Deep mutational scan, measured.
Amino acid sequence: KLETFPLDVLVNTAAEDLPRGVDPSRKENHLSDEDFKAVFGMTRSAFANLPLWKQQNLKKEKGLF
Protein backbone atom coordinates (compact mmCIF):
# COMPACT_ATOMS: atom_id res chain seq x y z
CA LYS A 1 0.00 0.00 0.00
CA LEU A 2 1.19 3.47 -0.89
CA GLU A 3 1.97 6.08 1.74
CA THR A 4 -0.89 8.54 2.21
CA PHE A 5 -0.64 12.29 2.68
CA PRO A 6 -3.07 14.99 3.82
CA LEU A 7 -5.11 16.63 1.10
CA ASP A 8 -3.38 20.00 1.48
CA VAL A 9 0.00 18.40 0.71
CA LEU A 10 -1.26 17.06 -2.64
CA VAL A 11 -3.76 19.61 -3.97
CA ASN A 12 -2.42 22.24 -6.38
CA THR A 13 1.17 21.17 -5.65
CA ALA A 14 3.81 21.24 -8.38
CA ALA A 15 5.58 17.95 -9.11
CA GLU A 16 8.88 19.16 -7.67
CA ASP A 17 7.20 20.15 -4.39
CA LEU A 18 5.44 16.81 -3.78
CA PRO A 19 6.68 14.44 -1.07
CA ARG A 20 9.29 11.94 -2.20
CA GLY A 21 7.76 8.92 -3.93
CA VAL A 22 4.52 10.61 -5.03
CA ASP A 23 3.80 10.13 -8.74
CA PRO A 24 2.53 13.54 -9.94
CA SER A 25 0.19 11.84 -12.42
CA ARG A 26 -1.32 9.67 -9.66
CA LYS A 27 -1.66 12.02 -6.67
CA GLU A 28 -5.09 10.56 -5.91
CA ASN A 29 -3.46 7.22 -5.03
CA HIS A 30 -1.79 8.91 -2.05
CA LEU A 31 -5.05 10.09 -0.45
CA SER A 32 -6.56 8.16 2.44
CA ASP A 33 -9.78 6.35 1.54
CA GLU A 34 -11.72 8.92 3.56
CA ASP A 35 -10.10 11.90 1.81
CA PHE A 36 -10.55 10.22 -1.58
CA LYS A 37 -14.27 9.82 -1.00
CA ALA A 38 -14.59 13.36 0.39
CA VAL A 39 -12.82 14.87 -2.63
CA PHE A 40 -14.36 12.84 -5.44
CA GLY A 41 -17.69 11.92 -3.84
CA MET A 42 -17.20 8.26 -4.74
CA THR A 43 -15.14 5.22 -3.87
CA ARG A 44 -11.86 4.37 -5.55
CA SER A 45 -13.53 1.51 -7.45
CA ALA A 46 -16.29 3.80 -8.76
CA PHE A 47 -13.63 6.31 -9.83
CA ALA A 48 -11.61 3.55 -11.54
CA ASN A 49 -14.69 2.55 -13.53
CA LEU A 50 -15.05 6.04 -15.02
CA PRO A 51 -13.65 6.70 -18.51
CA LEU A 52 -10.09 8.06 -18.37
CA TRP A 53 -11.15 11.48 -19.71
CA LYS A 54 -13.68 11.81 -16.90
CA GLN A 55 -11.09 10.80 -14.28
CA GLN A 56 -8.71 13.44 -15.66
CA ASN A 57 -11.40 16.12 -15.68
CA LEU A 58 -12.29 15.37 -12.06
CA LYS A 59 -8.61 15.43 -11.05
CA LYS A 60 -8.17 18.83 -12.78
CA GLU A 61 -11.31 20.17 -11.12
CA LYS A 62 -10.06 19.08 -7.68
CA GLY A 63 -6.46 20.30 -8.11
CA LEU A 64 -5.01 16.79 -8.28
CA PHE A 65 -3.91 16.76 -11.91
Rank of each mutant, 00 (worst) to 15 (best):
K1N: 13
L2R: 10
L2F: 15
E3W: 08
E3T: 11
T4R: 07
T4D: 04
T4Y: 15
F5L: 07
F5T: 02
P6D: 07
L7D: 02
L7R: 05
L7H: 04
D8A: 13
D8I: 10
D8W: 15
L10V: 02
L10Q: 01
L10A: 01
V11C: 08
N12L: 08
A14Q: 10
A15K: 09
A15V: 14
A15D: 15
D17Q: 07
D17G: 07
P19D: 05
P19V: 01
R20K: 15
G21A: 08
G21Y: 08
G21H: 08
V22T: 04
V22K: 02
V22I: 08
D23V: 03
D23R: 02
D23C: 08
P24I: 07
P24T: 04
S25I: 10
S25H: 14
S25G: 10
R26M: 09
K27L: 15
N29Q: 15
N29A: 14
N29L: 15
L31H: 00
L31G: 00
L31V: 03
S32L: 05
S32W: 01
S32I: 05
D33F: 05
D33N: 09
E34A: 13
E34C: 07
E34P: 10
E34R: 10
F36H: 00
F36G: 00
F36L: 03
F36W: 03
F36E: 00
K37I: 14
A38W: 12
A38Q: 14
A38V: 11
V39F: 05
V39R: 01
V39M: 06
M42H: 03
M42K: 01
T43P: 11
T43H: 09
T43I: 09
T43Q: 09
R44S: 06
R44N: 04
S45V: 14
S45L: 13
A46S: 11
A46H: 11
A46E: 14
A46Y: 10
A46I: 10
A48C: 10
N49H: 11
L50H: 03
P51K: 05
P51Q: 05
P51F: 01
L52T: 13
L52Q: 11
W53L: 12
W53C: 13
K54V: 12
K54F: 11
Q55I: 04
Q55R: 10
Q56V: 14
N57Q: 12
N57W: 11
N57F: 13
L58I: 09
L58T: 04
K59E: 02
K59T: 04
K60N: 08
K60H: 09
K60F: 10
K60M: 12
E61I: 12
K62Q: 12
K62F: 11
K62V: 15
G63S: 04
F65W: 14
F65H: 15
F65T: 12
